[in-house]
Amino acid sequence: MTSDARNPRARILGTGRSLPLAASASEAQVGAPPADGAADASEERRRAAPGETTSDLAVRAAKIALDAAGVGPRDLEMIILATSSGDAPMPATAVYVQQKLGAELIPSFDLSASLTGFLYGLSVANQFVTAGTMKHILVIGADLLSWRLDPRDRASAQLFGDGAGAVVVGPAADDGRGILSVGLRADGKKADVLQVPGGGSAEPLTPERIADRRHYLRVKQPELRQAAEELLGANALSAVAAAGLAPADVDWVIPHHADPHIAALLAERLGCPYERVLGAVDRAGAAGASAGSVAIALDEALRDGRILPGNHVLLCALGGGLTWGSAVIRV
């Protein structure tokens, strides 16, 4: 959290988002269509076009955020990319973003915290700017999870899509606007709730493991939902208190996914109208973009005028790890 929530020293200077070029999911990606021929939510998800990479999505979102902040790539002092689906196992995808943007020889690295990754990255940037070490840091949440989805697992296809959201973090003005608090948590005992088990040092890929589909995303959906129900609300309340606010002071809530049930629970815990809890992405075409979801929704709501200058916005997410977290900003 910040050292003085009432006098923030870092703020979000600009936001941006990018969706894949492809219009919708293909049958090859999400399995055969339902028997009645009706399209389900998964088939409305935007999926990456052939040859489109995570760094491509990240760069498009970054350029929009930089333009909104009024800074150029060479003004950046650090790039943080939150992703669980980089261009390659090595090097970090952030260096490809640096290269494509034409940024200076600045530190650029990936951060892996699943759907919570953007908030983890926002916290890191906040610390550097608050300390006075750096002035302009690019934080991106980007995932291209469609290629990690098992074509046989239609339930997961309904949860995850592709997309990127970006923000530029810089010094706050003396007007009370900025990053008021960030609270992060993790519970490694629940690591198997949301994971890709194969492909790392614990399970190097072999023909047998590929045949067993160990390289695909695996989700224990009841456990994931239970964790979100139990943890998100309490963490959100802690972040609001750390910001020196009461729940009634929060104007908008942006969770990691457009789930009406989770939105209703958050509204109940915070005592706010349900309409003030935005789906992490209101448009079905970009829902479930993992690390990109919260940043995408923030950019969308700022640009369409729902979130206004001076509003208090609560961002919250829960994902693999398990990781979860919340941040309160005054825009």
Rank of each mutant, 00 (worst) to 15 (best):
A5T: 11
I12V: 15
L13F: 04
L13Q: 03
G14D: 10
G16A: 10
A23L: 15
S26F: 01
V30L: 09
D36H: 02
D40H: 01
S42N: 09
R47D: 00
T53G: 05
D56F: 08
L57M: 07
A65C: 11
A69N: 06
I80W: 07
A82M: 09
A82W: 00
A82R: 04
S85P: 10
D87F: 02
V97I: 14
L101S: 12
E104I: 05
D110N: 13
S114M: 12
Y120S: 04
V124H: 09
M134K: 05
I137P: 04
V139K: 07
I140H: 02
L144Q: 11
W147Y: 13
W147A: 06
R148L: 15
R152L: 11
G163E: 02
V168T: 02
D174Y: 09
D174F: 13
G188L: 07
D192Q: 14
G199D: 06
D212G: 11
D212E: 15
R214K: 15
H215R: 08
R218V: 10
V219H: 05
K220A: 13
P222K: 09
E223L: 15
E223R: 14
A227M: 12
E229V: 15
E229A: 14
S238G: 06
L245C: 05
P247I: 04
A248F: 03
D249Q: 02
P255R: 07
I262C: 01
I262V: 14
A263N: 13
L266E: 02
L266V: 06
L266R: 02
P273S: 10
A280C: 14
A284Y: 01
A286C: 10
A289L: 00
S293D: 02
V294I: 10
R306T: 14
L308T: 15
L314I: 14
L314M: 11
L315S: 04
G319L: 07
L322W: 11
I329M: 12
